Simulated scan of single mutants.
Amino acid sequence: MKIRPGAADDVEAIAELHTESWRSAYAGIMPAGYLDGPLLEIHRELWHARLDSEQYLNGGPPSCLLVADADDGGRGVTAFAYLTPQRDERILLDNLHVQPGMKRSGIGRRLMGQGLGWAAAHHPGRPVYLEVLRDNTPARAFYERMGASLSREFVESFHAGFDLDVVEYTWAPEVAREVSAR
């Protein structure tokens, strides 16, 4: 597995993986009609907005997109992570997705380590956090194994008209540095 910085040419592969990951991980958690709907188009728009932005193209990204490519050349993008600074001085790990068939292969751990390393290097002293659906127990167990601490619980209202329980996990700056060095 090779991990590299993501680029605008990765939009389609990232949107497809993002959608595949949601449909797998959130089955039985999110309404089936939503998961079976136009998620791919929504994710394409999101990633085009992120990667085609003037800020990303001119002078480098303020955020960090890491992409894992398969060594065999046949699968393309097998995982990705996206981190971005927030106005509250924290770093949001907004996405960490691994192809469903590649979970527990170690690629999520490698992406997490590199992402936390990026945060420690470019934004020293800032905590990193993420939000995950409460009922996504495999993801929650992974984040806990990676040293995250439960920091908040809340209900999120989705634009499609449903509400879900969400939990927030945080890596204190010293924990993020430690995890990135593993």
Rank of each mutant, 00 (worst) to 15 (best):
R44W: 11
R134A: 12
A68K: 05
L116D: 07
I42S: 01
T78F: 02
R87H: 08
D72Q: 13
R140Y: 04
P124D: 07
R90F: 01
R87I: 07
W118H: 08
G115E: 09
L51P: 08
A139M: 09
G60N: 10
L57P: 07
L133Q: 15
E131D: 12
L92W: 15
V98Q: 15
T137G: 01
V77H: 00
F80G: 10
L40E: 05
D52H: 12
L65H: 10
R145M: 09
P85C: 12
V132I: 06
D72R: 13
R90L: 00
L83V: 02
R90N: 04
D69N: 15
E144D: 03
G117S: 04
E45M: 06
R90Q: 01
Q99R: 06
L96E: 00
Y129P: 09
G147D: 14
Y34I: 01
N95L: 03
P124A: 07
D69G: 14
S63K: 06
N136I: 06
D71T: 04
R50Y: 07
Y143D: 11
P61T: 02
T137A: 10
D135F: 07
S105P: 12
L83H: 02
G37A: 05
D52R: 09
R44V: 08
H48F: 08
N58R: 13
E41G: 03
V67T: 14
L51G: 13
A49M: 10
A79H: 10
P61M: 13
W47C: 04
H123V: 06
I107V: 15
T84K: 11
Q114L: 15
